[in-house]
């Protein structure tokens, strides 16, 4: 096995690994990238931060006393590492809803939208 063969084989192997990674987690490459914030653990729960920002901006226009740090702390405590879908389902069942942009939405989701708008 000569040097040229080893280099070519390694390159091919790396290409296969990269292709596999892309095939298994395409969202990582396709997902929009944002400057890091102190709330990325929460904002990462949102599928589309831009859409969420639109809702958040409207909500914040009527809630001037919203502070990101306080809201983030409360959200982390409330979500407690549970899947977002479960959190929202529980909130709907217990009536923890708010109006945002006139839509009736689960409280935590509106909190995330507001956080996205401020981030």
């Amino acid at each position: 096995m000569n040097r040229r063969t080893i280099v070519a084989g390694s390159a091919a192997g790396l290409a296969i690994v990269a292709a596999g990674a892309i095939a298994l987690r395409p969202d990582r490459l396709l997902r929009k990238r944002y400057p890091p914030t102190p709330y990325d653990d929460l904002l990462g729960l949102l599928t589309d931060r831009e859409l969420a920002r639109q809702i958040g901006r409207v909500y914040l226009s009527g809630h001037a006393n919203f502070t990101s740090a306080t809201a983030a702390g409360a959200l982390r405590k409330h979500i407690a590492h549970r899947p977002l879908e479960i959190v929202l389902t529980d909130e709907v069942a217990s009536g923890q809803l708010v109006e945002a942009a006139h839509w009736i939405m689960p409280e935590t989701l509106v909190g995330l939208c507001a956080l996205a708008a401020r981030s």
């Binding site: 599928t47 589309d48 859409l51 639109q54 809702i55 929202l88 942009a101 839509w103 939405m105 689960p106």
Partner: peptide, 12 residues
């Protein structure tokens, strides 16, 4: 804006 609300809620 409405579509943003629907997409945000439904995907979540």
């Amino acid at each position: 804006l409405d579509q943003a609300a629907v997409t945000t809620v439904s995907t979540a």
